[in-house]
Design a protein around this nucleic acid. Structure first.
Lengths: 249, 249
DNA sequence: CGCCATCTTGATTTTCGTCAAGGTTAGTGG
DNA sequence: CCACTAACCTTGACGAAAATCAAGATGGCG
């Protein structure tokens, strides 16, 4: 795990957990800009901060009654839908500053399950209170419309991936996406640790774990990446991008 | 086209187009219940009703500045993302009462293009006015949160389809989904006309048009459906469901 | 009536999944 | 601290599913 995250996690303490949104490094990721101090204080009262989740623990299960949205504060989560017979489709991997649970608003039940891929923390946002607060704070309402819209756009991207791209293009896109998200969070875009298994990557990308494994090996043989179990180094970002974009021919 | 839609479309006139939400048969599909007469009137002022769109016409293009959401009033639309090189992924087909354009909220640009698959009409909802109105009417805000959430859930379903299901399962799921949506609108769930080409179905389902064509033929040979060009009759709904659900094993 | 878009069907190829075996790693309990 | 175990990963051989290529049929629209 990259250093800053490690620090954030290992340094966990009552003190740190109580750090308010106003002092949170993720603030610009999850809160709208331009809130007045009063508004910010109201938002802070809304949020249940710093709930720790252990690796493998469910944040919520599909079918459970909807109570809250969650913002990942530390760690990495996967969200997945399971079909009646048990086949799992990972619908996304979520890292710090990203919100999960929006699927539950429509039916008042979670339609996905969310599981921690490593020890982590979330901020819990009780939805009914969020709703009334966003009724009072236009910027907050707008912000949540945008967050939900962003999720829709992301999903469309995944649909493009699954519907149109070949295995190697999917994996290249996946790695580049991770790279970019790590970079946004101040980590290296070239070196990172995967938090998920080959099977979970495969489930997300519509591939079998063997295919994912083979592709990692091939990318390494081709000098595109360096793989050491879950540790990834992207050696040739332009080539990966070409693979991804040219793939789209 | 099934009779009621034909009536709605062919009977188009200034008079009918001006029918307000309060008298619109789609009202329960697109508006929240329990609005007061005052609130309903405010919503009606917001909506630009009855814009006609001809077959093949763009409702909006990917990249265009975001102005409004649209509710399909008549006809059928497809929404698609196009990758840099021109591969198209159809992200959805939309029929009466369904809302499109929500992807554009996050970036203030449409990320998809929406095209009419037949002559139709839409209600236009200027987003900035929708925003301020939903600020004033809690039920409206809640309604739009739910609509966006529903779109996310739908997208997850498509991801499950694309990531986990075999070609025949995808097509069965597609037909059953259409069937159900026609039924909701008062048309026959067993007989309907497709509004889209084999290629568009294929694009949506992550298949090539030849595969779609072959599957239609096979379903027909197996006595599951009757195909006559775009006219579809579902002969054995339970078997289609089994294909869809068992497919998920 | 004729043309172009759309659809069907067949033959072949490619891609990825399946099955199988063995290796590695991390975590657990002695 | 070390040995053991279970989960995870890699690699190969083979097979199935769907894509590709190709040719011709059909149908809707001007």
């Amino acid at each position: 795990m990259p250093p800053p995250a490690t620090a954030a996690l290992q340094g966990v303490s009552a003190h740190q957990l109580k750090v308010a949104c106003s002092g949170c490094g993720l603030r610009e990721l999850c809160l709208p800009l331009g809130l007045s101090p009063t508004e910010l204080a109201a938002v802070e009262r809304l949020i249940q901060r710093g709930q720790s989740i252990r690796k493998g623990q469910f944040l919520y299960r599909a079918g459970a009654a909807f109570g809250a949205l969650y913002i990942v504060k530390a760690g990495c989560f996967k969200s997945s839908v399971v079909s009646e017979d048990g086949r799992e489709q990972v619908t996304g991997f979520y890292m710090s500053g990203e919100m999960i649970g929006m699927d539950a608003i429509s039916t008042e039940r979670y339609t996905c399950s969310a599981i921690a891929l490593e020890d982590g923390e979330v901020c819990e946002l009780p939805f009914s209170r969020l709703e009334s607060l966003s009724q009072q704070i236009p910027a907050l309402q707008r912000h949540f419309y945008k967050l939900m819209s962003r999720e829709i756009v992301r999903d469309h991207g995944v649909m493009l991936l699954l519907g149109n791209m070949k295995a190697e293009e999917r994996l290249a896109a996946f790695l580049l996406n991770l790279s970019q998200r790590f970079q946004c969070r101040g980590y290296s875009p070239r070196q990172f640790n995967l938090r998920m298994t080959r099977e979970e990557i495969g489930s997300f990308l519509g591939l079998k774990l063997e295919t994912v494994s083979r592709l990692f090996s091939r990318f390494q043989d081709d000098g595109l990446i360096l793989v050491n179990n879950r540790q990834i180094e992207l050696l040739d970002l332009p080539a990966l991008r070409r693979l991804f974009v040219n793939g789209q021919q």
